[in-house]
C-alpha cells in the first residue's frame, strides 16, 4: 500500500487550501498521485475541473484564466513537465502567475526505468524556464509549502512548481 492511499488527509487539506485561496480552475492529465484533488474538483460545483489531453494545454489555460481574473492550478506528473516547456515561454515572457503541483516519478525508490530521464530532468527544465521549484518530501511540509507557493504565485506573480516527491506520495514498484 502506498503512502497516499494510507494517509489521504493531506490531500484533502491541500484541496481546501487551494479553494480558500480562490483557485477555481483545476486542470490535469489524470494521474494517481493527484487522484484526490482531481476527484474533489470533479465533485465541486463551484470550480471548473478540466481534463487535458496533454499538459501544455494547462499552461495556456491558466494564462487565459489570469487574463479573465481567475486563478488556476495545473496538476501533472513529472513526465508532463517535458510537454510544457515551450509554452512556459508564455508564462515567462508574459509574467503570468503560474502554479503547478507535480507528482514525481523517476525519483526516490522508482521501479520503472522509463521514468528516470524526465523525472530527473524536472527541476533543471523548470528552472531553465523561470519556474521556481519547491520540493516536498514530508507530510508535515505539504500545507506550509502550498501556502508559500500560493503567496508567491498570486501575490507576487511568480511561476512556482511544488514537486511532491516519492518519499511523500510513495514510489511505484512498476
Amino acid at each position: 500500500m502506498d503512502t497516499a492511499a494510507a494517509a489521504p488527509g493531506w490531500q484533502e487539506e491541500l484541496y481546501a487550501v487551494l479553494r480558500q485561496n480562490g483557485v477555481t480552475q483545476f486542470a490535469y492529465v489524470p494521474d494517481a498521485g493527484h487522484r484526490v484533488l482531481i476527484d474533489r474538483s470533479l465533485a465541486d460545483p463551484e470550480v471548473h475541473s478540466i481534463p487535458l489531453t496533454s499538459e501544455e494545454e494547462g499552461v495556456a489555460l491558466l494564462a487565459g484564466a489570469d487574463l479573465g481574473g481567475a486563478r488556476g492550478v495545473l496538476l501533472m506528473q513529472s513526465s508532463g513537465v517535458g510537454n510544457c516547456v515551450n509554452l512556459l515561454s508564455l508564462v515567462k515572457g508574459g509574467r503570468f502567475p503560474f502554479l503547478t503541483l507535480v507528482s514525481m516519478r523517476g525519483d526516490f525508490g522508482e521501479g520503472n526505468p522509463w521514468q528516470f530521464p524526465m523525472g530527473q530532468a524536472v527541476q533543471p527544465v523548470l528552472e531553465a524556464m523561470g519556474v521556481i521549484c519547491l520540493r516536498v518530501e514530508r507530510r508535515e511540509d505539504v500545507i506550509p509549502t502550498a501556502n508559500a507557493a500560493l503567496t508567491m504565485v498570486f501575490k507576487s506573480g511568480q511561476a512556482v512548481a511544488v514537486l511532491l516527491g516519492q518519499k511523500l506520495i510513495g514510489a511505484k514498484p512498476f
Binding site: 494545454e57 495556456a60 509554452l87 515561454s89 508564455l90
Partner: peptide, 22 residues
C-alpha cells in the same frame, strides 16, 4: 485582444481559460 507572438499552440486553450473565467 491578446495576441500571441510565440508559444505556438496556446491560442485555443488561452481562449478556454478566459471563457471559463468570464
Amino acid at each position: 485582444a491578446y495576441l500571441l507572438g510565440g508559444a505556438m499552440g496556446a491560442a485555443c486553450m488561452m481562449g478556454l481559460g478566459l471563457a471559463l473565467a468570464r
